[in-house]
Design a protein around this nucleic acid. Structure first.
Lengths: 188, 188
DNA sequence: TTCATTTTTTAACATTTGTAAAAAACTGCA
DNA sequence: TGCAGTTTTTTACAAATGTTAAAAAATGAA
């Protein structure tokens, strides 16, 4: 809960009143490893906050599955297309560990945005920060080789690499698992 | 102007009053080809709307320059990191044609967001839609080969390819110009 | 602990893409 | 029109990554 409050305020500082309006709507929920939080082709009706656990977002290709996002403690989880357009998402989101989340229903959140200008600006900032993070990843991929991206992950999120299997990380880096193995062999 | 109004309302429908508050702050401005709208390392203090023209956003690498976004008529232009965090942007943004833009100063826009809940939600939606577009591009790159991405561009934005030189398009697609030439030769 | 299953690594070979340099095509201006 | 500069294509070769399959290592349940 503490982590949640800190995160909310770090997105955009809120008065106590507004903060309360938001957090009373966020319900703790424990879910097991492998649970699917959002399924491609379906409309996800909730946003989650990860208090404890890991999630990954992936898309199904013809033959392969591509993982393109990991969420760790302190991250919000949403299926963008569902959250933003109310349309079926492209991606599925799966828990990789038994997790403790906070859930808020999408319609509840939208109502808060309509009624409270502070929360509307909070929601704006939340989207903007997600945009920023995605742009950073997008640009990093344009410039850096898979090897450099991997080494950066090693430095910035060593936990991630220890907790997530390499096949997922390889696809996140945009290479095959064989290539990631080669990269790891070179570094050693 | 017409195009601008339509775009604003397509992001998030506004009452006439709110719409007016926004558009009176947007000033038309004509700028020549090669004009730099935002420079990497600097804080950009304006958001632009492209009424007529083309822009590209790019980052400087050690040896190369990578173009990662094109803006056409109907697009908003911002240096994300400046707009979102008020920090120096990673990217430079350059006009590729003589252009007609509408400009709004960032502080003016921020003030509107604080005062008008409709505009705050409009700003939220604007960021969300940008996020959505970026995610689509991000995912497309994970699944599609440069050749497929190029052919999609040919279908969805043939104008873009006619108006922009291939070196920029190649780097946008994440390949060298030589590779893009090979792709084009194969298609013919 | 043991065994079956899953995950990771290694190997050999095919394919794709990059690099550098030259040729060809295009553009804009005098 | 003609010419200089820019952009695009082509070529030959090098380097990186993918594919397939098998071996090795790690994991989890009985």
């Amino acid at each position: 809960m503490d982590q949640l409050l800190k995160k909310i305020n770090s997105v955009y500082p809120l008065t106590n009143d507004s903060l309360n309006q938001l957090i009373v709507k966020m319900k703790p929920i424990e879910l097991p490893k492998h649970k699917i939080l959002a399924e491609a082709g379906q409309v996800g009706r909730s946003v989650y906050f990860i208090e404890k656990g890991i999630a990954r977002a992936y898309c199904e290709g013809r033959e392969n599955q591509v993982t393109f996002w990991f969420g760790l403690e302190g991250d919000f989880v949403f299926s963008y297309n569902s959250y933003i357009n109310g349309r079926p998402g492209y991606e599925s989101i799966e828990l990789l560990e038994n997790s403790l989340l906070y859930e808020i229903k999408d319609d509840v959140l939208q109502t808060l945005f309509q009624e409270n200008i502070e929360l509307a600006n909070w929601g704006r900032k939340l989207a903007e920060l997600e945009l920023m993070k995605l742009e950073e990843r997008y640009i990093a991929r344009l410039f850096k080789s898979a090897s450099e991206c991997y080494q950066e992950l090693l430095n910035t999120s060593p936990l991630l690499i220890r907790r997530i299997q390499l096949g997922y990380i390889a696809s996140y880096l945009g290479v095959t698992q064989v290539t990631l193995s080669r990269i790891r062999a070179e570094i050693r």
